[in-house]
């Protein structure tokens, strides 16, 4: 089979970008989408042209490095998989495929189809953790956790941080990502002491990064390679409201030594 690619090319963050059309060499329908790009790149290199830059690493749907918006949908035509798990047999012979980078102001483009998702790291650094020092922990079975909660926390924890939710949302909102992180910790007893601090700090950082707001369109859930539910967004909305109503911590009263 062969396909025509309409690919976004952009030299670097500052340069203006635009679409280029490429004819693929002969392809095997069992190729993954990224292998198709490998083949196209080898072909380009053979002609001395600059290969198309795209992000990838594990190629088994877990590292969250691969991105790409394929014909308007992040991670390609199927649900519950990442771009690296998309295969060429999902496309008809001879079609034109539009390939674009994830687009959002907080995801500036580095080159071609590669975008910079460090804003996600900064959100996580704002509060996406349980403050526990190595070695200072009780026995793992000393705190019982209902299986339902642990399973629900796992549902949220499955997020691979790829950013497809942002890419799909018409508002470029990061609510699904942030809420998955907030909920993962918020559902576990170990996460309770910092629950309100965490949600406040992470939401604030999310806003500072310039992501849009949630209008409950459901795009994020539809494209998430791990099918993370919008329920978690509601959970974060609730946690944030409670945190605000509770207010910040009281200043410690004076007195101490002596």
């Amino acid at each position: 089979m062969k396909v025509t690619l309409k690919v976004w090319r952009q030299k670097d963050q500052k340069a203006p970008g635009g679409f280029q059309i490429y004819q693929s060499p002969e392809l095997n329908p069992n190729m993954s989408f990224l292998e198709m790009l490998d083949v196209v790149n080898e072909d380009l290199a053979g002609r001395g042209e600059d290969p198309i830059a795209f992000d990838h690493d594990c190629r088994e749907g877990i590292c969250g490095t691969c991105s790409l918006v394929i014909d308007g949908k992040p991670h390609g035509p199927h649900q519950g998989v990442a771009t690296c798990q998309t295969y060429m047999r999902s496309f008809r012979n001879g079609v034109e495929i539009v390939i674009e980078p994830f687009r959002a102001r907080p995801f500036p483009i580095i080159k071609d189809l590669v975008c910079d998702r460090k804003s996600f790291d900064r959100i996580q650094q704002a509060g996406g953790f349980i403050s526990v020092r190595t070695g200072s922990t009780p026995d793992a079975n000393s705190i019982l956790i209902p299986k339902e909660n642990s399973d629900l926390a796992m549902d949220a924890a499955q997020c691979i941080g790829c950013g497809a939710c942002v890419a799909a949302c018409k508002n470029a909102s990061a609510m699904l990502f942030v809420s998955a992180k907030v909920s993962h910790f918020g559902l576990l007893p170990q996460g309770q002491p910092e629950r309100h601090r965490r949600v406040t700090a992470m939401v604030q950082q999310m806003d500072e990064e310039g992501f849009g707001a949630c209008t409950v369109t459901g795009s994020c859930e539809a494209v998430c390679p791990k099918s993370i539910s919008l329920d978690f967004i509601a959970r974060m909305n609730r946690d944030f409201a409670v945190a605000l109503l509770k207010g910040g911590p009281k200043k410690p009263s004076s007195g101490g030594a002596g």
Binding site: V132, A140, I143, I145, P146, A157, H184, F185, Q190
Partner: peptide
């Protein structure tokens, strides 16, 4: 295992 559980790793439970 103690360390990871305390960090919020959602290990499978009974």
């Amino acid at each position: 295992i103690d360390q990871c559980t305390a960090q919020g790793v959602p290990f499978a439970r009974e």
